[in-house]
Every structure is written in structure tokens, then in C-alpha cells.
Design a protein around this nucleic acid. Structure first.
Lengths: 220, 220
DNA sequence: GCAAAAGTGTTAGACCTACACCCATGA
DNA sequence: TCATGGGTGTAGGTCTAACACTTTTGC
């Protein structure tokens, strides 16, 4: 039961985003071997025999990046014949959003084999991974406008200023505080916790939580 | 030089849309062999050795559907392990928009091996192709709202009523004539030709043309 | 008391929606 | 002269964008 001799290698690569130090950052792993030995690359891996593509991406995320239970969405499939010098590899790419507050501290400390780097200041990456990151960033920015996807970056409780910062960092532009608050309140996707955050020598900020965590709502 | 034993078959399947008889229709080909022998299916084919995915989709479109030079965009990649009973096939799907006025008449006549069927009244299709068509329809409808993609369905010259019909048929709802015309004129993507269409026992209609044919503009 | 970030309303313009009648033609 | 589809404007509501000052806290 074989269809034909046209067999290809299929992999998934995952762009894991987080917001750290008020910048949009991507999780990268160091390539230990040729090709591109020593280069930073996206976490990725081959699709197993009886494994769905989504499951493969989630497994790669878990095994190579120690990230689980986060928002994960298929992005695009890249298959230029020469994109891997070893031979034909078609890669189904995904992007994931990891709330920095919910990741363990160990995951946030960079090592020689794994690190977070800001998307707007990346070194040369392996394969066509720079192109993949750029596309993922573009898609994420577009989704901010018509969905509640940004909430996937937030922890249990957060201030409106923190959320606004997420928007600003992804869009690469600053937003008006009053308009931002009015719009978000209008979406009815977050609610006050009644608690306050005291974080410096200034007035405390209200803490909010996501109304329906895990759900990304699309509007318009 | 082989990466690993994890090899998969990769194919592309293309959802070719057109507007005919004031309905959104899809091009289907009859499956001559098992599995799903006799069922209607999307035109598709295996990705060749040194062929890019986009090129493969264009070739499939040309060879299996005799359609060339039309708008073609990657849609989504499907890879459930059991989606093809013969074995593991990952399919990268595309959708294409074919302006009925520019297709040869021969292409528009249905045969036993190839036909156009309305998306909202399809028979059971082979594999997961019904799911693919539904997703393509959804994506197309979404793109109407923020791009000039609908113009890809139009011929050299067309009336505003024809264009409005395209929108209505894809969205599945009727639109207000005056608002529709105001909005489209505002987009500055079409222009008057100065010619008129006399098509029945009523007032003639202005003929328009696309300002930048082949270009799909995204706004907002 | 000073520095720092939190919080809060209003107004003008753009855009969207709903809605009804006259026009030009062929039969 | 009638049936058919082509063509046009206005008013009300909603949404968006621009804009500056007061509050509360820690030091």
C-alpha cells in the first residue's frame, strides 16, 4: 500500500512568541550539527508516522521548548526545493504565544542551547527561518486588530498598562491610553478582579483578568 | 544524503472558484479509481521532486483543470494520519479564483469527468475535500471585507451590478445598492471605461474595468 | 514635595446604514 | 405603455482619533 515514489520529508517548525523586557521575543534553539551548525533556529521536528500536524507542533513545543498548554495556530507551509541543503523538506509552520508570567523562570533564562531574542533584532537564522518569523509577526499583528489574541500573552492578573504595552510592542507603535481602554472595555473580554497592583512610587493600578481564558474571540 | 526514515507523501489540492448562474461554484474532477472511485474531488496532485509548492498548485490547476494565469493563494495544510486510506498523505491546499468571462466556453461545459458545482449544494466529496472547500469559502468571504480580491472574478469590463452580485453570492446576503456603489468608488480600484452595456429591455449600464488588474490590494 | 504612572471625558470628523424614487431602454 | 434593471442623495447613528489634567503612591 504505497501511493507512489514521490515521498518527501515533512516537518513542523514553531515560532514561539513572548513579551519580555517590553519587546516581542522569539524562542530559538542552537543547531548542534550541520547544516547551519551553531546557528539559531526555530524549534522544529519531523512529523511522526501516525501523528497529526497539530499534534506534532505541540510535541515539538513540549520537547524542544518545554512549553505546553499555550495558544498554537498553523501559519503557512514552506516547501522551496532548496530550503534544506540535505534534501527535500516541506515544513508546516505554526506560531505559539507564551505568557511570560506563566512560564517557569528556568525557561526564561537563556542558555547556550536555547534563548529568547527580540524579533526586530535577530541574528542570521538557519534555513528560511527568518522569513517564517517575519510572516508570523505579520499575522500576529493583523490578528490584534480583530481578535482577542493578545490576551494569550497575559498572566492570571494584569494591569491595563501591561496589556497596552503588549499591543504597542507587537504593532510597533504607541497607542492612546484613553482610546485603548475604552475599546478594550467595550470588547467585554476582561473584567476587574477588585485587586490592585502596587508596583512603584506611584498610584496603584487595577488588576484585571481574562473573562474566558483559552478562548480567542474573533469579531467583525 | 537522506535525512531520516520519516518520509511522507505531499500533495496539493486546489479549490477553484468561479461565479456562474449567480452562484459560487467549485471545479471538481471525477475520481476514476479507488479510493472514492466515482466521487467528485478537488483537482490535486503530488508534489514533484524539484518543484515548489506554489508551482505544483499552478501545474495541477493547468493540467487537471486547464486553468492558468489566475489568482492562487495557499490556504491551509491538512495532515490527519487517516485522511487517505492508502497511507499518509499531507496535502497543502490552495484556492484559486477564475473569472468565468475569461475562461473558454469549453471549460465551462461540464463533462462526466469534470464539472462545476455550487458550494452550497455539494454532493459527498472524496477524502476531507468538503472540509477544504468550506474553509476556502470562509477565507474568501473574509477577504471580501478588507481586500479587492473580488475583482479577480471579473472580466475585462463589467457593470457594478455584476460586481455586486459577486459579493452577494459569496457572502450569502444581499447588499444595499447605493451603499455598495459608494464604498467601491471610494476604494479607487475600478474606473469607468466610458462604454455602456445594453443587455435587455432596460436602461444601459456603465461598464467599468479594474484599475490595477492582477493586483489584490489589502486595506485597513 | 516631587517624580512616576494611573486614571478619566469630550468633541469633531469619518464612516456606516437605512431608505425611495426617477431614468432609459426594448418589447 | 409597461416591465426591467440602472442610477442617484440624505439623515441619523456609530465609531474613531485627537487631546490634557488630576490622582495616588513611594521616596
Amino acid at each position: 500500500m504505497v501511493i507512489s515514489p514521490d515521498s518527501r520529508t515533512v516537518s513542523t517548525d514553531v515560532v514561539v512568541f513572548t513579551i519580555r523586557d517590553e519587546r516581542l521575543q522569539v524562542l530559538l534553539v542552537r543547531r548542534p550539527r550541520e547544516p547551519y551548525a551553531g546557528f539559531w533556529a526555530l524549534p522544529g521536528g519531523l512529523v511522526h508516522d501516525r501523528e497529526d500536524l497539530d499534534d506534532c507542533a505541540a510535541r515539538v513545543l513540549r520537547q524542544k521548548a518545554s512549553v505546553a498548554g499555550v495558544y498554537l495556530e498553523q501559519l503557512y507551509t514552506f516547501g522551496r526545493p532548496d530550503r534544506d541543503p540535505r534534501g527535500r523538506v516541506v515544513t508546516v509552520t505554526y506560531y505559539a504565544l507564551a505568557p511570560v508570567a506563566r512560564l517557569g523562570g528556568a525557561l526564561m533564562t537563556d542558555t547556550d542551547a536555547r534563548c529568547w531574542l527580540p524579533v526586530d533584532d535577530l541574528p542570521a537564522l538557519a534555513f528560511d527561518h527568518a522569513e517564517i518569523v517575519a510572516l508570523a509577526h505579520q499575522r500576529l499583528a493583523a490578528k490584534l486588530e480583530y481578535s482577542t489574541i493578545a490576551l494569550q500573552f497575559m498572566g492570571e492578573r494584569f494591569t491595563l498598562s501591561e496589556l497596552q504595552c503588549v499591543y504597542e510592542v507587537i504593532l510597533g507603535e504607541s497607542l492612546d491610553k484613553r482610546n485603548f481602554r475604552r475599546r478594550l472595555r467595550g470588547l467585554r473580554c476582561i473584567e476587574e478582579t477588585g485587586e490592585w497592583f502596587r508596583g512603584g512610587s506611584h498610584r496603584p493600578a487595577r488588576l484585571y483578568r481574562v473573562r474566558r481564558p483559552g478562548q480567542v474571540e474573533i469579531f467583525k
